[in-house]
C-alpha cells in the first residue's frame, strides 16, 4: 500500500484518477482502518487528506451558511459553539458515531462516503439541506448530500472524485433540528433506526420541515409526506401521530442482526415524533 499526502484537492483527485488499484481516502480513518484489519479491503493507494489546507476548518460565511472541512472530527464540531447552536441535530448525529475516542477522528465526510444507510450524521445533514462540494478530474461540482449515497457502501462519486467541503444553509430565525436514533445500548451501537427532523417556525406553527430516516432503506430517505403532515401545525399530538403513521407506513426496512423489519417500522414513527418535538422546542428556543 502506498501512502499519499497531497497538499491540494486537485492533487488528491489526480492521484486517485491515476491509480490502477484499490484506493481509499483517509480523513478520520475510523471505517477504513477497521475494514483493512478485517481483510475486507486492502487498498493499493491510501490518500490522506489531512495535509490539504482548510480541511480542519469550520467557517460561517457572510450569508450565515456554514462551510465544514472534510477532516473536521466529531470532537471538533462538537466544540464549536456557533455551529452547535445552529445545528445541534447534525452535531448530535456525528457525536453518536462511536465512542469519545472515535469522536477524536470520525468525520462527516467519512460517515457519508462509507455509504452505510445507518450512518448517524447523514440524516441530519440531509434534513438540513447540506451540499457537498465535489472535485474531480473533470472539475468541481456541487451535489446535494442526499444524492451522494446510492446504496449500501455505494456513492454517486465517480472515479477520481472526492468531497472537498460541505456547505450547510444558514439557520435563519426560528429554526431547529434534532437527530435521534435507537440502539439497544446507550452508546457504541449502530443505529437500528435513525431520524432527523429540521424545521422552521412561523410563530407556533411549523413553516417548513424536512424529515430524514436512516437504517430503514438502502439509503437514508427523505420523507416529504411526513414533513407535510406537520407543516402548518403546532405539532399537536394528532399531527405527530399522523406523521408517525406516515413514517411507519413508508419505511422499507430489512430484518437483520440489529433488528427486525417489524421493530424498525414500529420505532421509526416513535423516533420521528420524538425528534420533531426536540427540533420544535429548539426552534422555539425553549430548549
Amino acid at each position: 500500500m502506498k501512502y499519499h499526502c497531497p497538499k491540494t484537492f486537485a492533487d488528491a483527485a489526480q492521484i486517485a484518477a491515476d491509480a490502477t488499484g484499490v484506493i481509499r481516502y483517509l480523513a478520520g480513518g475510523t471505517d477504513v482502518l477497521v475494514q483493512m484489519r478485517a481483510g475486507m479491503v486492502t487498498p493499493d493507494d491510501m490518500i490522506d487528506l489531512k495535509h490539504i489546507p482548510g480541511v480542519k476548518e469550520i467557517v460561517q460565511n457572510a450569508d450565515g451558511s456554514w462551510t465544514i472541512g472534510v477532516a473536521v472530527a466529531g470532537a471538533e464540531l462538537g466544540a464549536h459553539a456557533g455551529f452547535c447552536a445552529d445545528y445541534p441535530g447534525i452535531v448530535e448525529g456525528l457525536e453518536l458515531v462511536g465512542s469519545t475516542q472515535v469522536q477524536g477522528r470520525a468525520t462527516l465526510t467519512g460517515n457519508l462516503c462509507n455509504g452505510s444507510p445507518a450512518a448517524d450524521s447523514v440524516p441530519a445533514m440531509i434534513a438540513a439541506g447540506a451540499v457537498a462540494h465535489v472535485v474531480g478530474p473533470n472539475g468541481a461540482r456541487d451535489v446535494a448530500v442526499a444524492d451522494i449515497p446510492v446504496g449500501p457502501g455505494k456513492t454517486s462519486l465517480t472515479k477520481g472524485e472526492l468531497i472537498s467541503a460541505f456547505t450547510i444553509p444558514a439557520r435563519g430565525a426560528q429554526g431547529g433540528d434534532a437527530y435521534l436514533r435507537f440502539t439497544p445500548r446507550t452508546e457504541m451501537d449502530i443505529a437500528v433506526v435513525g431520524c432527523a427532523v429540521n424545521l422552521t417556525l412561523d410563530g407556533d406553527r411549523v413553516a417548513s420541515a424536512r424529515v430524514a430516516m436512516g437504517a430503514v432503506a438502502p439509503t437514508v430517505i427523505v420523507m416529504d409526506q411526513a414533513a407535510d403532515a406537520i407543516i402548518g401545525t403546532t405539532l399537536d399530538p394528532q399531527a405527530l401521530d399522523t406523521m408517525a403513521t406516515i413514517v411507519s407506513g413508508a419505511v422499507k426496512p430489512i430484518s437483520d442482526k440489529r433488528g427486525t423489519a417489524e421493530f424498525r417500522t414500529d420505532i421509526a414513527g416513535v423516533l420521528a415524533k420524538r425528534a420533531a418535538k426536540i427540533a420544535y422546542d429548539r426552534a422555539k428556543g425553549t430548549k
Partner: peptide
C-alpha cells in the same frame, strides 16, 4: 492522546 485529542490508536495509521 494525539495532540491532546483522545483517540483509539488502532484507528490511526502509524504513518499519520
Amino acid at each position: 492522546t494525539v495532540d491532546g485529542t483522545l483517540v483509539c490508536s488502532c484507528l490511526m495509521l502509524g504513518v499519520e
